[in-house]
Design a protein around this nucleic acid. Sequence first.
DNA 1: TATTTTTGCTAAAACGATTTAGTAATTCTA
DNA 2: TAGAATTACTAAATCGTTTTAGCAAAAATA
Lengths: 342, 342
Amino acid sequence: MKKTSLSDIAKHLGVSKTLVSFVLNGKAKEFRISEDICKKVVEVAKELNYQPNRIAQGLRTGRTNTIGLIIADIANQFFGILGREIEQEAARFGYRVIFCSSDENPEKSRQQIAMLQQSQVDGYIISPPKHSEDQIRALAKGHVPFVLIDRYFPEIESNHIVVDNFNAAYNATNHLLKLGRKRIANITVNLDLINMEQRTEGYKQALRDASVPVDDNLVKVLPFSHDNKDVARAIKELVGKNSPKKIDAILFSTSKLGINGIECISSLGLKIPDDIAIVSFDNPDAYKICVSPVTVVNQPLKEIGKIAVQMLLNQIKHPDAPSKAQEIVLKTDLIIRKSCGS
Amino acid sequence: MKKTSLSDIAKHLGVSKTLVSFVLNGKAKEFRISEDICKKVVEVAKELNYQPNRIAQGLRTGRTNTIGLIIADIANQFFGILGREIEQEAARFGYRVIFCSSDENPEKSRQQIAMLQQSQVDGYIISPPKHSEDQIRALAKGHVPFVLIDRYFPEIESNHIVVDNFNAAYNATNHLLKLGRKRIANITVNLDLINMEQRTEGYKQALRDASVPVDDNLVKVLPFSHDNKDVARAIKELVGKNSPKKIDAILFSTSKLGINGIECISSLGLKIPDDIAIVSFDNPDAYKICVSPVTVVNQPLKEIGKIAVQMLLNQIKHPDAPSKAQEIVLKTDLIIRKSCGS
DNA sequence: TATTTTTGCTAAAACGATTTAGTAATTCTA
DNA sequence: TAGAATTACTAAATCGTTTTAGCAAAAATA
C-alpha cells in the first residue's frame, strides 16, 4: 500500500500536480481554479486518503513545523508539566515537538542542539544547563528562533521567560521568619545558574532585612546529580547534635532536594513542622500528601509553557522583526500548607 | 549564514557531490575513492561545519530516524519516566522522538497518529486509549512498525510489552489478606482497557482463593478524567458510617487515584494503616514521603522503555521479517512500606 | 599490441512537495 | 475586429540528499 502523493491525485484526474497543490493549500481562488475541478480534487484526495508528506514539504519550504525542546529531565514532574503545556500549545498551532532531556549536561545539550539543527526544526525552547553559553550564543548569532525557559544567561541577550526567583525565595523565607523561625537553612544545587543563585540571594536578603545574621554554613550547595545520601549528609550536618548551628527550618531550592530531604528528616525521627519547618520550590504531588503537606513556591507552569511557545512562534513567523529581546518575569505564589506550623 | 550542503563541499573541492556523499557516508572504500581526496572532503566538511540535512535525507531514503510516541500524559510521572527511557534508548541508536499526550482520548490519538504519519516517522510506540482499536488495526494492516505499551487489544495481533497485571494485583491483594484485612476495596478507572480489567480480576481471584466473598460494591470504577471529588465520593461511600460495607483496605489501580485517595483519607481523619491499609499500583515519589509510605506494585519502567524501543527498531530494520507478533509480559514487584501495617 | 579489467570518479534521476513563469483559449475593450 | 485583458490551467525548476548507471584513463592480461 504505497502512500498517495500529489501526482497520484493529479494523474487520477488528468490535471497537473500544480493545480492539485493549489487546491489543497486553499489557493484555489488566488489562482482561479474552477469550482468543479476544485471539488473533484478534494473528493479524490479524500478517496485516496491523501496525507501530505511533511518531509517533502519541509525540504521545499524550509519550514518543518517542528520545534525542539531541551529540558533537564522529562521524568521530573516540573519539566513534565511544562513539557505537556508546550506540546499542547504547539499542537494548537500545528507544530510538533521533539523532546530532549539534557540531564543538565552541556555536552548532551550540544549534541541535542546539533541533532535538532539537522532535523531542521523551526525553533528551540531550551532550559540551558550551565556552561552552555557558547551554544546559546551560537543560536543567537545564527538568528535561529529560540526561547529560554527557567533560566538564562545575563550576559547573553535572549528571549526568555522565567519567574522572579529572588522575590519568591525572599517571600518564602519571610514566611518562615514571621512564624518565628530564626535558624533557617537553604539547601540548593550547584548549577551556577542564575535561577538558583537568585533563590539563595533572596533567602539571604530576607534574613538581612529581618536582622537575622546570615550564616554561610547554613547554605548547603549540592552537586546537580545528587541522591538521597548527599541530601542526608547535608541535613545531618545541619541538625547534628554536636552541631552548634542547629536549625529550625529549611528552604529547599528544588523539589528533588525537598523530597529527598523530607524522606531523610522523617528517618531521623524529626517532626515537621515541630522540629523543622519546611518550604520548597515547585509543587509536585508528593508535597500534597506528605507527612506534613509542604508549603511551596508554586510556579505558573501553564503560563510559562504557553508564553514560551507563543514567543517562539512569533519569532518564527516574523524572522526579521526589529526584535528587541523579550525578557519575561512571572510572579510565583506561596501555597501555605502545614509544613511551617502556624 | 546559509547552511552548507553537499554541493558546497563538492564545489569547494572541484569534485562531484556524489563523491562527497560517498565519503561522508563511509562508503569511500566500497566506491574506491582515493585516500587523499577522502581526507580533503572530511577536512572541508569540518571546516564549513557541514550538518547533513536530515529532511532531504529522509525524503530520498524514506527513513527519517524518528519515532512517534503516544502516551496518555507526559506530566504523569509514570509516563514521564517511561518517556525518558524511550527517548534515551532511541537516542542511543540515533533516533529522535516526537512526544504526544493523548489524554486517553481516541480522537486525539487519531489526530496524533495522522500527524506522525505525515511526518513520516519510521515507527510508533503507543499506549492506546480505549476505542482506538481501528487506529491500531490500520497500522497493523499497513505494515507500519509499531509497539504497544502498558496495554493492548487482545483481539488484535500486535507487538506489545506489558506487565502481568493479573498476578500483580493478585499478589498485592494477597499481601493485604495475609495481614488480616478482609474488607478490601478496589478503586479503579473506567478505561475498558485490558490492563485495568486484569488488575480487578487479579484482585477478585485473590479474594476467592482466600474464601473471602467478592462484593461488587467494593469495586469503585471512576471515569478516566476524574478529580479529587470523584475519588472522595467513592471513598466516602466505602467508609460511610451508615455503610454496612465498611472497609479496612483499598487497592488503588493507579497512582493518580491513590494520591487523590490518600489526600481524601487524611482529610476524613482516618489513619493509614490503622483504619485503612493501602496498596497502589505505580511508584511515584509521592508515595515515598507520604504520611504512611505506601506499599506499591512497582513496574519495571526502564525495561519496558528499553525493550519497546528495541522491538520497534528491530521491526524497522527488518521490515519483511517473518514476524510472529511478540507479546512480552514483565513481572512487577511489590515494594513493602508502611501503609499496610505489619 | 589488442583486449580486458580495474581504478577513480561523475551525471542524472529520484524522493514529493512548492512556486515561478508562462501559455493557450476565451472574453472584453476600443 | 484587432489588440488587450482575463481565465484556467501547466511545465519545469527547486529544495539537499542518495543511488544507479556509466565513462575515461590506467593497469593488467593475453
